[in-house]
Amino acid sequence: MALIETGDDVLVVAAKTKVADDVVSLVLQRRDGGRLPDWTPGAHLDLVLPDGTTRQYSLHGDPREAAAYRIAVLREAEGSGGSRYVHDELREGDLVRFGGPRNNFRLTPAPAFAFVAGGIGITPMLPMLRAASLLGSDWRLLYLGRSRSRMAFVDELAGYGDRVTVRASDEVGPTDIRSWLESGPDAAAPAETKFYACGPTRLIEAISELAAERRPGWTRVERFAAADRGEPARTTAFDVDVIGTGRSIRVVPGVPVADALRSAGFDLLTSCSRGVCGTCETRVVAGVPDHRDSILDDAERVDGTCFFPCVSRAKSDRLVISL
């Protein structure tokens, strides 16, 4: 295993605790116990494991805690190894690196919130609930899971009383999100209530259907897995012009734009390489992007000025970007 050297981005695993079946929570601190970069509810951290794997995890602690990051990691049987490493190999006292935090899932102000969490999707919700309380907003949470023993932080949520509804499908069967949404005290003024959801793809898809009936921007979601965007829009090569450099880079099928740019000598930072984290955000000046990320919402996609070259491609023959 590669030895992690010194650096401003090194954290020590100060605690590793099982918080549910197949879920561990990590407390990460600087070795000198110093302040960490600030973050806001909904933010995630890039965790760089000793084997070089990088994964994104939502911060579930309290932003007022200046010297620790808390993340919770679900063991994913089909995952690519990051979660398995955290569960089986990573020990208290081990060193990891971090990037970020970044926030693609910001809590925006509203008089009332309806939060829906599926499984480990509870993590970004925890700081949001605290923030919503501090903001004086009314809020409710629907927390869905397969079975109670696999659902993290249920005890902690009990302190919020009947604002929180926990439903495990092995106890009560499937839950109809629509009827939950329409049953609360905020349902009388749905135009005011903001709807936040985090969970696996099928939960997000169910939410997106409901969102289509609502005011744009009043529903915000974060999915863990990258959305399957199907095949690229074009099967032929296209050109990417980097404005201000006079250079045009040919991108052939199968090669990510980010790789093509780097091969051509451009300095471009990427992290997740899956269109989830937002590190490589780039501006589109001309041309039509084929957005293949999981970050932009529909309005931003149509707007077409923002582009994630780690996964996104072009529909037009030429894309002009600004790095």
């Binding site: 806001t40 509810p41 932003p63 007022r64 926030n103 910001r106 809590l107 102000p109 501090l134 501006r283």
Partner: peptide
């Protein structure tokens, strides 16, 4: 924070270098 978060993030974007 948390009252400061949303106004700050909106202005950071509008007044950002890009």
């Amino acid at each position: 924070p948390p009252h400061h978060d949303a106004p700050r993030s909106v202005l950071e974007k509008i007044l950002g270098p890009r």
